[in-house]
Amino acid sequence: MTKNLKKYFPIFLLPTLVAFFIGFLVPFVVGIYLSFCDFTTVSDAEFIGLKNYADAFSDGGFLHALWYTGLFTVASVLTVNVFAFLVALVLTRGIKGTNLFRTVFFMPNLIGGIVLGWIWQLILNGVLSYFGVTLTFSATYGFLGLLVLINWQQIGYMMIIYIAGLQNIPEDVIEAARIDGASPLQMLFRVKIPMLMPSITICTFLTLTNSFKLFDQNLALTNGMPSGKSEMLALNIFNTFYGRAGWEGVGQAKAVVFFLIVASIVLIQLRLTRSKEVEQ
């Protein structure tokens, strides 16, 4: 059958292959090349070596966005996962209303980033107005606002994964621990959390990449104000491309750096998952 199927290459493989070249492969390869060029459109590219990268790393806005994004990622990974885990623990106890609570907590996840940003801009500015300031008053408010937003959006998603993980812990393991006289805290830290390591890795990884690549929410909530101080990496790259004429090459170099950071996060994650699989 394999031989027979092989001849059907144009029907089975070709459509996706063509689209993949247009939608990913060509833009990716050309993008790498352009990061070493000076250009405003693709056709006038002129090779200039590493100058774009040097410019990117001497751009204060980019460096600021880099650590702002890093800090935000750490804060959101910690808060989202801790809250989602606590909610999942309660919602696997069989309390009344479990289904309704699950439905409600998951719901914000379906709303797009732009819409979320505007919803929270209204709410947070409303709260801050009692203190006579707005979200764009300082980057700290933008940071905390975005943190609240991301928690509201993603706790439900991670909760679903943690609930599935908790429900997959075999009943006899819990029972055995109980017979051995494990206290509730011991049960949590010695039995449940170790058994949940796969879910914890998945959720950490998802929140990590989601926060690091955040764009829509950042754009709609503060748009980087005041003066780029609440700008995350993705938005900084976008503004370099489309907000500063003649900076396209630097924007592309920043995008390559961005890609390399995301790729290393994923590689580290894969390695961690593999080493754990061996242990089990």
């Binding site: 993008g31 961005f258 790729a263």
Partner: peptide
């Protein structure tokens, strides 16, 4: 690969 990497091209 994040979208920003291929955004322009």
């Amino acid at each position: 690969v994040p979208f920003q990497m291929v955004m322009f091209t």
